[in-house]
């Protein structure tokens, strides 16, 4: 699958910090990636790796005590092709508000929290539409809302449009949220754990729906997930994060079939597979993710790494080394000159 087209959004050296009682915590520590038009990027990692904060940073939705402390996020999807630097826009500015929704949409794990329980789902979609499209009449907005509900394959949309969120099942709510996020035709959809709260059969339907809509509408998707399988099935490219750093990134097939970073390798081996026959012990990643105030020196993963080399891994942060075409990993084992030294 070729995705070598112009970028839709690029992130360079993004740093997002949070002021806490224990001092300044870097949730995102200088990450870079680009998402091409119509492409799909999966940001993969465990809880606390900074993947959610990355998503919110893209929308400039980091609220105090957090703040984007460095780096640049540039959006190239505006009409006329003029790049917009998101990081230079004030979070509450008119331009930023326009960008959210009409250019970049977002969906979350638990749809219920993003709905107002006092309004019907139709009213909420209409509200979104009218806020972003000037001069749209209420009747026209309602027609569009029904159209959107049909687009996310909800049965009898003209009835559902007048239902309240609590009257819908989990899967239906997720569909409505997708409809709402897509109502203004964004070119990028940020989907944070969109299927984690759903049953397997429903998850499968939602993933199918997202993929179909993506092809239909030609939008790019940024998948934020902890689920390797979801990333594998949905993404073109994957970014693996650990403690705020990108530890590995590349085309999804390369990264997941031929992982280069010990963290990615261990993660893959620790997931019990449906297609595996072995009943042996799983390989595990020992210990636990350090809390952000105990950020390890050097490679962030060295405290749990199977290949930990004292004096090397705990001194300096390794850069991203090339591990293949478009494939990079932040580990000295991948460094071209490393093989010469005895391990």
């Amino acid at each position: 699958m070729s995705v070598e087209t112009t970028p839709l959004i690029s992130v360079e050296g993004l740093v997002t910090e949070f002021r806490t009682e224990g001092g300044l915590v870097r949730a995102v520590n200088g990450i870079d990636f680009t998402i091409p038009r119509g492409g799909t990027l999966a940001v993969l990692g465990e809880s606390g790796c900074g993947k959610s904060v990355t998503g919110l940073s893209l929308l400039n939705l980091i609220r105090p005590p957090g703040a984007i402390a460095g780096g640049r996020i540039t959006y190239y999807g505006m009409e006329g092709g003029k790049p917009v630097e998101i990081t230079s826009l004030p979070p509450t500015s008119e331009a930023m508000r326009k960008l959210r929704g009409s250019e970049i949409g977002m969906i979350f794990q638990e749809p219920m929290t993003s709905f107002d329980p006092l309004y019907t789902v139709g009213e909420q979609i209409i509200e979104t539409l009218m806020a972003h499209k000037r001069g749209l009449s209420r009747a026209a907005a309602r027609a569009q809302a029904i159209e959107m509900l049909a687009k996310v394959r909800l049965p009898s949309p003209e009835i559902l449009v007048d239902r309240y969120p609590h009257q819908l099942s989990g899967g239906m709510r997720q569909r409505v949220m997708i409809a709402m996020a897509l109502s203004c035709g964004p070119k990028l959809l940020i989907a944070e754990e969109p299927t984690t709260a759903l049953d397997v059969t429903t998850e499968s339907q939602i993933l199918d729906l997202l993929q179909n809509l993506q092809q239909e509408l030609g939008m790019a998707v940024m998948f934020i997930t902890h689920d390797l399988a979801v990333a594998s099935e949905m993404a073109d490219e994957v970014v693996v994060m650990y403690l705020g750093y990108v530890v590995e990134r590349g085309p999804v097939e390369d990264v997941l079939n031929n992982p280069s970073h010990p963290y990615t390798q261990a993660l893959l081996e620790s997931v019990p597979r449906l297609d595996a026959d072995s009943k042996e012990r799983l390989r595990t990643i020992e210990g636990m993710v350090p809390t952000p105030d105990q950020m390890p020196r050097g490679c962030p993963f060295h405290t749990r790494c199977r290949h930990f080399m004292p004096g090397i891994c705990d001194t300096a942060l390794p850069p991203l080394y090339a591990a293949g075409p478009d494939h990079e990993a932040r580990c000295v084992l991948v460094a071209p000159d490393f093989a010469k030294e005895p391990a």
Binding site: T284, T291, Q294
Partner: peptide, 22 residues
Amino acid sequence: TELAAAGALAPATADADAGTAK
């Protein structure tokens, strides 16, 4: 063996968080 490894790691982590507010 891996359990033992976990045990070996435990004191280090315990010491590490002994000094914090946790």
